[in-house]
């Protein structure tokens, strides 16, 4: 895991969803989530098109009722034991004079940390992101799905 989605499974296998804006159209700036599960982890990919990456930017990912924030510095808030988030950034954080392009999160969250109820196989996941592009107007997007475990 290095922050980039080099592995083919991110393109070929992951459940992929584009966040939708308040107006029902594709979220602006463009935001995307990709989800996979391996034997022990929920693998989360988050893509943020972002012309001005700030350390306060973040995605909110809610898994089975628990909300985690992922930011461009690779922080998971609140911290998750065994959780890892790495970031592939094309830009300079907190430098508004420099145009940025995007940041990408590649994260792994131990399934054991998610307090899934015994036997649960269908886990609801929601992803949200708000950002303020050059026009100064904050825009938000969201996407949700159900990930099936153990099949």
């Amino acid at each position: 895991m290095d922050g980039a989605w080099h592995e083919r499974d991110w393109n070929d296998t992951a459940l992929t969803g584009q966040l939708v804006g308040d107006d029902g159209g594709p979220a602006r700036p463009f935001s995307q989530a990709r989800l996979m599960v391996d034997d022990s982890r929920l693998l989360i990919g988050l893509y943020a098109a972002d012309v001005d990456v700030r350390s306060t930017d973040h995605f909110e990912v809610t898994v089975a009722g628990r909300t985690l924030q992922f930011d461009p510095l690779g922080h998971i808030t609140p911290p998750v034991e065994g959780g890892v988030a790495l970031v592939d950034l094309d830009g300079i954080i907190d430098d508004p004079k420099s145009d940025d392009e995007e940041w990408v999160v590649e994260a792994g969250i131990p399934l054991a940390s998610l307090d899934l109820s015994t036997g649960a196989s269908d886990v609801p996941i929601a992803v949200a992101r708000c950002d303020t592009p050059r026009d100064g107007k904050q825009r938000c997007g969201a996407w949700s799905a159900t990930v099936t475990l153990g099949r």
Partner: peptide, 14 residues
């Protein structure tokens, strides 16, 4: 200067 970067890549602006 103009920026014309809205040809299909993930949109960064509005």
């Amino acid at each position: 200067q103009i920026i014309v970067g809205n040809g299909g890549a993930p949109l960064t602006g509005s």
